[in-house]
Design a protein around this nucleic acid. Structure first.
Lengths: 195, 195
DNA sequence: GGTTTAACTGAACATTCGTTCAGATCAAAG
DNA sequence: CTTTGATCTGAACGAATGTTCAGTTAAACC
């Protein structure tokens, strides 16, 4: 048998997270066993516990990591300038970021109900933070008279839901390029907030 | 012990489906056991098999029933007249129908990956039919010059995603009435398709 | 080259799973 | 009152679950 033991912590750790994310996205947290994850990595189930205290924490860490990445990426990408430019940037950023991490987006939305209450509260808080980022843009646009937004909070949730929907049908090899998809959605987003 | 046996088929049947739908929505198909469903109904697990051949079919029947109800309800509700009126009707119908059946909507979207391939194909087909109904309205509006819709198929998916998002935050006891929610969303939908 | 130790194996633990089925029960039919 | 048949119980089946841990392996260190 090939060498299967030794020091691989820095290699195996990411592979555990990658395999768990892929399997959770495909089959759902509850339907995936620790043995399946281990098999995908190429180790026995017991070895996973060198990398996570338990299955729940593995899920939670994946979701928190994704949400924190999302917030950090937007904070780094948000442009200076007027609200309309920020809204376009948000639209394109959200589509690009989410399609590039489809599994993490899927898991972070679908597995909320499998989080223990305190873990759920953390992820929910991060999600609300993200919504608040967009809400701030809409409020700024409304105050400047560049946008018409009767309910900024609801509008932010509505737009995010619309944009996240891209993930349900977009395929890299499909008819439209990502840039074209961005353009189609930006068209709809822009129109939905102008008088 | 109270009477627990006898002829209750027409009573127990719906109760099994109701309990299963509620539990599937709350905890997920894979995380809910037949014993939990049975306990919610007040019978032993074995009794469930008088009402479904297996757990998978129970899930599938719930999802198919919901999707068929959805299509039938829209076909009954779609107004004659111009495309813009049809779009407003669709917007209000979708919000009203979906918020009134939140559990079924949730399950029909979240549990797709737990369907066996042939069952998945059926539900996916019904979903596409529903999208096609809206797409037809958008095409009609574009042809009549009343709407600007560059990609009717994508626009229909985008609008449905936006409208279905209401379910994630709407509560009957919340600040806005359903009629007010409808108005907010119709405002955004209308603007998103006019030049 | 011998020692240390992180990484992993393989077996075991108590639970729980979906499903089956012989037998008990009771409303309805004769 | 007796019979019938749908409905449900309660126990059982093998398989799978998350997690633990004593022991094995091999890379890294002195």
């Amino acid at each position: 048998m090939a060498r299967t033991q030794g020091s691989h912590s820095d290699i195996t750790g990411p592979r555990v997270r990658d395999a768990a994310l892929r399997l959770f996205a495909r089959h759902g947290y509850a339907a995936v066993s620790m043995r399946q994850i281990a098999a995908a990595v190429g180790v026995q189930a017991g070895a996973l516990y060198n990398y996570t205290p338990d299955k729940q924490t593995l899920l939670f860490d994946l979701m928190r990591g994704h949400m924190e990445d999302l917030l950090a990426a937007w904070d780094a990408a948000e442009p200076e300038g007027d609200a309309m430019a920020a809204l376009e940037a948000f639209t394109r950023f959200h589509i690009r970021f989410n399609t590039s991490r489809a599994d993490a987006v899927f898991v972070s939305y679908m597995e909320l109900r499998n989080l223990e209450p305190e873990n759920f509260a953390v992820i929910e808080g991060l999600r609300r933070e993200y919504e608040t980022r967009l809400e701030a843009v809409l409020r700024r646009g409304a105050e400047a008279g560049a946008m018409v937004v009767a309910e900024p909070r609801i509008a932010s949730m509505a737009l995010i839901a619309m944009l996240t929907g891209v993930n349900t049908w977009y395929r890299a090899e499909g008819r439209l390029s990502l840039a074209e998809v961005e353009a189609v959605y930006w068209d709809m987003v822009r129109r939905s907030v102008v008088g």
